[in-house]
Amino acid sequence: MTTLFFSDYEAGETGTPLVIFGAGGLGREVLLLLRQLNATHPTWDVRGFYDDAAPATPTVAGLPYLGTAADLNATPTPLAVAVAVGSSASRAAVVARLTSDKLTFPALVHPHVALGPQQRIALGEGCIIQQGCLLTCDISLGRFVLLNLGCTVGHDAVLEDFCSLMPHANVSGAARLAAGCYLGTNATVIQGVRVGEGSIVGAGAVVVRDLPANVTAVGVPARELRVKS
């Protein structure tokens, strides 16, 4: 895993070419994030969108649709990619298909998110941290972690690769989310609780005890859904 401590986090060179994989709503939100970053420090030359499902129109938010993952892999020159796919499993599947050594995956952090060296926060490649997020200290985010609008992450929390937090989700201190966890809007994981790999926490649920891998939990307190046979 490539880990980037925020003390090492620097904006790229002006005019760095970048494309967005994911031509849906999250892709348009990531485009907005990139424009907000450029307003603070002009860095990204956003060329357009890729998606394996072509959009209904040839342009998305004023930028062209450029093709599929196969087309992106065929790029002849270095290109940065923002993977704007909300589902943890789907995002991991997309990244697995993007195999060209010409592609890089920068961490994108909203310019108003307060992060600094004294907070000791580690970011993996491809992380996206949107506006209004609050992270405290001694936090580890793996590769391609998504923090949507207004999320909070407390001290000593660990979010492994491909975790996804939807708007206003909250991860308390020393909680651990295994790879591919998904927290719905306004979901909360309380202090010290562990959520197993690939598990889904429904919108508004509050996780007060450890959850195993690959379950869906809903409610307050969160309980695993039981599937009728």
Rank of each mutant, 00 (worst) to 15 (best):
P167F: 06
P42I: 15
T59W: 12
G116D: 04
P221A: 08
G22H: 01
S229I: 04
L79C: 10
R97C: 09
V83E: 05
E160P: 00
F162V: 09
V60P: 07
F5R: 14
N186H: 08
R209K: 07
G27V: 05
P55Y: 11
Y50F: 15
L63F: 14
A61G: 13
T57S: 15
Q191D: 12
E160G: 08
D161E: 09
R97D: 14
A175P: 00
C181W: 00
A23N: 04
R28T: 13
R91Q: 12
P64A: 14
R223I: 04
T16V: 01
P212K: 00
T40M: 12
G126Y: 05
S164A: 14
A169L: 03
N170Q: 13
L33F: 12
L183D: 01
E125H: 03
R97S: 13
D101L: 06
L146N: 02
C151F: 05
T188V: 14
G48I: 10
T40I: 07
T185F: 00
G150R: 02
S100Y: 08
H110C: 05
P111D: 14
L165K: 04
D71L: 09
L63E: 13
T77A: 07
P78Y: 08
R143M: 07
L26E: 11
Q130P: 03
A96V: 04
G196Q: 01
A96R: 13
N186V: 06
V85D: 09
N148E: 10
T14V: 12
P221M: 06
